[in-house]
Design a protein around this nucleic acid. Structure first.
Lengths: 112, 112
DNA sequence: TTGATATTCAACTTTTTGGTTGAATAAAAT
DNA sequence: ATTTTATTCAACCAAAAAGTTGAATATCAA
C-alpha cells in the first residue's frame, strides 16, 4: 500500500463510513451518550461503541466518563488536513496558481 | 446501514483509500495512462485498473480511450459535496452562526 | 502476419470492516 | 444487598475491499 501520511489516512477512513458520519452530524447539536447515539441507528451498543472507538482514535471525538455513561463530544482532530487535501485537489480546476495554491505552498514551506 | 446520501458516500469511500488518493494527486500534474499511474505504486495493472474503475464510478476521473491506452483525466465529480460536508462540520468550531453556516443554510433552502 | 504492448476480465485468496451475541464491569436505583 | 442500566470486551461471522494470476482483447510495430 501507499501509506505516506498516516493521520490523514486515519481521518479519511474514519469519515468514509456513513454511520460514523451520521454520528458526527448528530454530535453537532451537542454532546451525547453512546446510547443516545446508538438509538436512531438500528445497530447494537457494541457496534456503536466500536464506531466511537474509531472516531476517538482519529481524534474526531472525545469520550468523557460520567458515572456509568460516556459522553461523546466533537473534536477537530485532523479535520483541517482532510479539508486541505480536498481544497488543494479542487484547486486543480480553479487554475494552477490562484490564491489558495500559493497559500498552501507557503504553508508547506513553513511546516515541512 | 445508514446510507442517506449515496453520492456523498461514494465520494468519501473513493477518497478513503491511500492508493486512490495518490493516483488523484499524481493526476494533478496532468493526464496519465493506467501504466504510468501503476508504475510508482508497486501494484499490478489489474489492481490499478480496479482502483481507476472506482474513481471513475465516483466521477473523480474520466478514462479516455486512445488506441490501446487509456488516458485518465481528473474530474470534479461530487468533490464539492465532500468539501461542503467538511466545511459544515468544521463550522461547529467557528461558532454556530457565522458566515459559512448561514450560507449553507440558504443553500439548503434553495436546493432541497 | 506475427509479436509485443496496454488494458481488462474472471476466478480466486487474503485482509479488513461492520456487524452480532453473550459475558464482564461498573455505577445507579431500589 | 440486589437489581437494573450503560458500556465494553471477546469471540465470532459475513460481506466488502484490495490484491493476485493468467487468459482474453485490442492496438501498435516489425
Amino acid at each position: 500500500m501507499v501509506e505516506y501520511n498516516d493521520t490523514l489516512n486515519q481521518t479519511f477512513k474514519a469519515l468514509s463510513d456513513p454511520t460514523r458520519r451520521a454520528m458526527l452530524e448528530s454530535l453537532r447539536t451537542g454532546p451525547k451518550t453512546i446510547g443516545a447515539l446508538a438509538e436512531p441507528l438500528a445497530i447494537s451498543f457494541a457496534a456503536t461503541s466500536k464506531h466511537i472507538g474509531i472516531l476517538e482514535d482519529a481524534a474526531l471525538i472525545r469520550r468523557e466518563k460520567r458515572g456509568r455513561e460516556r459522553i461523546c463530544h466533537l473534536q477537530r482532530g485532523q479535520l483541517d488536513e482532510a479539508q486541505a487535501w480536498l481544497d488543494r485537489h479542487a484547486a486543480f480546476w480553479s487554475g494552477a496558481l490562484d490564491a489558495l495554491e500559493t497559500a498552501l505552498k507557503e504553508e508547506d514551506e513553513r511546516d515541512e
